[in-house]
């Protein structure tokens, strides 16, 4: 029997994008038109799946496939997973996927006329440690065009999926790179209303994570929803 855990705090205003974001064309027919039903958080919402490295093996180096190095600029991404109370979230699974250095995904749906890289697949998986720290190695993904609007290009980005400790903490997001001129033009990035919340999606170059003669380092922290200090009866 799972013990009932404290409910998650309400989402901070303007920190999350609206599903109805007209500038992002794919939302038009996919965003619900009705206001969501606010439901109380029960054990279904406050608990969540657990993944272990034994069952879900880590894949911490996307830059090498079958012993061969991928094309592109090798980077190390390191950071911490914490909750809104700034407490580390240990032993949580982080799924990672991205385009290759030329801006193409190893995916049948991606027909962008950029070269495939046989030594780059673009999928990875790591776990945070006991203090919430995670790290992986990859290559910097390229920008690529998409058909959202004339001459639309996605900024360089890496996709992430995290589970946290409860169903209400689940998040899928994207990490961007500092100084990218495409960020100011990207409707997906700009869909986050609060500029500070938006900017927290941009990794920071970090010379201390940078490995000499080997790879540039970037710092990127994840913040998952925090739990209320005391369980409440109403959501």
């Amino acid at each position: 029997m799972t013990t009932e855990a404290a409910p998650f705090r309400q989402i901070v205003a303007n920190s999350q994008p609206a599903n109805d974001t007209p500038s992002y064309g794919s939302t038009h027919l996919r965003h619900p038109a009705r206001v969501p039903l606010r439901i109380p958080q029960t054990i279904t919402e406050t608990t969540g799946p657990r993944f272990t490295p034994a069952q879900f093996g880590p894949m911490p180096d996307l830059s090498v496939t079958n012993g061969k190095q991928a094309q592109g600029e090798r980077i190390i991404v390191r950071g911490r997973v914490v909750d809104e109370n700034n407490r580390p979230v240990p032993h949580t699974m982080i799924e990672i996927w991205q385009a290759n250095a030329g801006g193409r995904y190893d995916h049948p749906g991606d027909q962008h006329d950029a070269p495939m890289d046989p030594n780059f697949h673009g999928g990875g998986r790591v776990f945070s440690d006991a203090d919430g720290w995670y790290q992986f190695t990859t290559i910097k993904p390229g920008a690529y065009p998409w058909r959202n609007h004339p001459n639309a290009w996605r900024p360089n980005h890496i996709h992430y999926s995290l589970f946290g400790t409860g169903f209400g903490q689940r998040i899928v997001t994207q990490m961007y790179f500092p100084g990218d001129p495409l960020l100011a033009l990207d409707p997906i990035f700009l869909a986050v209303p609060d500029p500070a919340a938006r900017d927290r999606l941009i990794a920071a170059f970090d010379i201390d994570i940078t490995a000499p003669e080997w790879a540039l380092g970037y710092r990127f922290d994840f913040v998952l929803r925090g739990r209320d200090a005391t369980p409440t009866e109403q959501a």
Binding site: I11, V12, S15, Q16, P17, Y24, S26, V82, D83, E84, N85, N86, H159, S161, I171, V172, T173, Q174, I188, F189, V192, D194, A197, R198, R200, L201, F222, V223, L224, R225, G226
Partner: peptide, 11 residues
Amino acid sequence: MLAATASQTIG
């Protein structure tokens, strides 16, 4: 208090 990381599409 921190605010949770913003969600982005799974694409």
